[in-house]
């Protein structure tokens, strides 16, 4: 995995004309944003954060998408457990 990461960083740096350190920085920012979204949406879906606060932190689109996903997963699991 470490070798694969190094290879990918090198490939991205070459293709984009960036130093490898900047590729790492961007990867960290992007990864951190995903983890942040997961945390906020989990807190909202678990009832630990109200809807407006969740929207303030990750945006309406992501909150609405999570709500739709929740409906779908609940419908699907319920169907699977009763089919």
């Amino acid at each position: 995995m470490a070798a694969e990461i190094s290879d990918r960083v090198r490939a991205i740096a070459e293709a984009r004309g960036l130093p490898e350190s900047e590729v790492f920085e961007r990867a960290l920012e992007r990864g951190l944003e995903d983890l942040w979204d997961d945390l906020v949406l989990a807190q909202y879906l678990d009832g630990d954060l109200d809807r407006e606060d969740a929207i303030d932190r990750v945006g309406r689109t992501k909150v609405e998408r999570a709500e739709r996903e929740r409906e779908i997963v609940e419908e699907d699991v319920d169907w699977g457990l009763n089919a």
Partner: peptide
């Protein structure tokens, strides 16, 4: 595309059943 938190809810549904 599905958020991790949603998957966790699905697993909890399995546990509840």
């Amino acid at each position: 595309f599905v958020t991790r938190a949603i998957v966790e809810r699905g697993i909890r549904q399995l546990d509840e059943s």
